[in-house]
Design a protein around this nucleic acid. Structure first.
Lengths: 195, 195
DNA sequence: TGCGGCCGACCGACTGGTCGGTATGATTGA
DNA sequence: TCAATCATACCGACCAGTCGGTCGGCCGCA
């Protein structure tokens, strides 16, 4: 059943979130899902398979969400990266300041990738073509795709800092940076001030 | 002896580089250093101690190198981030295009941090004050420190992509992005074109 | 009665860490 | 002066526990 598979994938990510990717063992995932180890192995015959599953699942989920947001964004410039930003920081479009920080799909994908790098680097291979396609689409859509790509890099950098705990979650500095990134997606290549 | 300690730290990083941080076991590090496990434990009484050692060692090394470069950079604006960029991509200041990619101190620090996150997240705590200081210094030096910080985030994002293999190492796109980042450090907040 | 989904005890390899020991060289003391 | 003593650097067999993965079997349903 697909529901059981999804439950297991979510449990795996939950373990990574709470205890770090070093603690993501098959036993831990099975226990978090309320399933026996055999049950887990039934759906994912190896740890590699489980991590690949995470990569596919959250990768596709993120891509789907991005496409949805692109479809309703009236401003063509920087739509793709802006979608990413809105998914990562939902409070941005609500117009509010607070970030109650329910885990976004961007962080989920980030965690899945880092976990994969720890388990078996070869699992990351499928990501490469995915990234290449994403970049190609950006060069199709945007006049200054390089600029958008740089904004994307900054978002990923922010994910990294958040993951490492280098940036306090409720820091006003972070909020200012994010708003600025948002402005950057709208007005390349001259930018830097509020929109 | 400090020399043996340094050798062990370098060996640990070598293991991480070649086989991934999931393969960094005490036995592997000892073997890479040509030392027995007991010898390794003599200098680093636990795995946590070893990883903390890496964090300190490469963190200080990177900071020292940054300060050196800042001291000889005539342009005050964005010196700190520009130093980072030059360390990460040494071919930038040579004026050449190729990147023979000898491992930079920036990547070394990146690998140490990711490894620490996998072994024991608490080991990252000392990094927080270090990062806070770095940010404070940037707000002291730069009129638009936020902009510099954003460039820094983008550099870290690029480290991440490189680590995950998402960006082909010899891609001309990467080179263009890096040159643009370099330009960004010099002319905030209006920027985006070549220097 | 047969069968597929799931269970969980079990396995061998490996992990971080311990410990008794050795080699070397400096320090002491009669 | 030269043993006896101590400190340091290092060794590697060993231990208890954990890991990913296997497998024989149970159970509900057809």
């Amino acid at each position: 059943m697909a529901a059981s598979r999804d439950l297991l994938l979510n449990s795996a990510l939950q373990v990574v979130t709470h205890d770090g990717f070093g603690a993501m063992t098959l036993d831990a995932v099975a226990k978090a899902a309320g399933v026996s180890k055999g049950g887990l192995i039934h759906y994912f015959p190896s740890k590699d398979a489980l991590v690949s599953g995470m990569l596919d699942f959250y990768g596709e989920q993120l891509e789907r969400e991005i496409e949805q947001r692109i479809a309703v964004d009236p401003l063509p410039t920087g739509r793709r990266v802006r979608a990413m930003l809105h998914i990562a920081f939902p409070w941005l479009e609500a117009g509010e300041a607070a970030q109650p920080a329910e885990q976004s799909d961007v962080i989920r994908m980030f965690l899945a990738m880092i976990t994969a790098a720890g388990v078996n680097r070869e699992l990351l291979a499928p990501l490469r073509s995915r990234a290449r396609k994403m970049i190609a689409r950006m060069f199709n859509d945007d006049a200054d795709a390089e600029w958008q790509l740089m904004t994307w890099l900054a978002i990923d950098g922010m994910m990294l800092w958040q993951f490492l705990g280098l940036l306090p979650p409720a820091d006003p500095l972070q909020e200012r940076l994010i708003r600025r990134l948002h402005a950057m997606t709208k007005m390349p290549p001259v930018c830097g001030e509020e929109a």
